[in-house]
Write a protein that binds this DNA or RNA. Structure first.
Lengths: 150, 150
DNA sequence: TCCATTAGGTTGCAAAATGCAACCTATCTG
DNA sequence: CAGATAGGTTGCATTTTGCAACCTAATGGA
């Protein structure tokens, strides 16, 4: 777990947590790898087949995700496979994945299109996630702002 | 507001809301444009200066975000500027931005590094956002799964 | 009125990221 | 020992990104 980018790169906006997160997982594939890992994928071949990603790109993304402490790579029990598992930091992306999923459900599908659904262990859909203010009232983007560092 | 990608492109994974969202805003810049729009940026030049993005790329991203119904472009009162404002769908990305921000705060900064902070209109930091199950109990990634469409 | 400035682009070209297909090595399995 | 499986690497073409120069229209001040 390495709180840094690769040597030679730099953060797009070092003081902003949103920008750092985008630098770490904001490409076309990383978040989908994480999505599939959350849904049970563990081996190179599983990710390859589920995603339809090019092999060399998958190799690169898995390596970077391991480097950044989001995935952990270990030898599988059978000796010849490798197992990729989400670390604690990787599992903690669940909130962000759910938020992106729910936005997609609301805005990226036509009314007559169906989509996959995230359900809990009893098969029930999740309630919508929304930011709250400290006192528990719903908080909109307009009612918030970013306090820059000194 | 156009629930579709550009002509000639195709969804990476048409049935998955996470994948569709990534197709729409999952590049290096779109989410940061949205972040700055939420923090008050409205003109081409403002985005350019805040982000340090190349002009042609900004032109392209603003056009796509407008095309996808996330931003709305209009003539400003002074006649020569343009104003970009978040649509309802754009504002609805607030939850996702907050989730990505909070993950970044927890995992993308060393203990001695400081970062900008999102606060409500009374200057208070937001509580952490976490998915809940239908009955209100915290829900982890392990206790959920994706139900694919028929 | 004329000239500089501001705003919001476009264009050409170089560099980097991505994707495809072929190839490679080690390990099982029959 | 032959084939299949797993997890890569390599070379090359295509696409995307980034930089810098250029362009046009509108303003604003001397």
């Amino acid at each position: 777990m390495d709180v840094a980018l690769a040597a030679g790169s730099a953060w797009t906006d070092p003081a902003c947590p949103v920008a750092r997160t985008v630098d770490l997982i904001g490409d076309r594939w990383s978040l989908l790898i994480i999505r599939d890992a959350m849904d049970g994928a563990t081996t190179f071949t599983e990710f390859l087949q589920r995603l339809g990603i090019a092999r060399n790109i998958l190799t690169d993304r898995l390596r970077k995700l391991v480097e950044h402490g989001i995935l952990d790579k270990s030898a599988a029990a059978d000796g010849r496979r490798h197992t990729y598992r989400l670390t604690e930091a990787g599992l903690d992306l669940f909130t962000a994945v759910v938020a992106l999923r729910q936005w997609g459900e609301r805005h990226a599908f036509a009314p007559d299109e169906s989509h996959s659904v995230l359900v809990d262990d009893q098969g029930r859909e999740l309630p919508e996630l929304h930011p709250l203010s400290r006192d528990g009232a719903p908080l909109s983007a307009e009612a918030s702002h970013v306090r820059k560092i000194a």
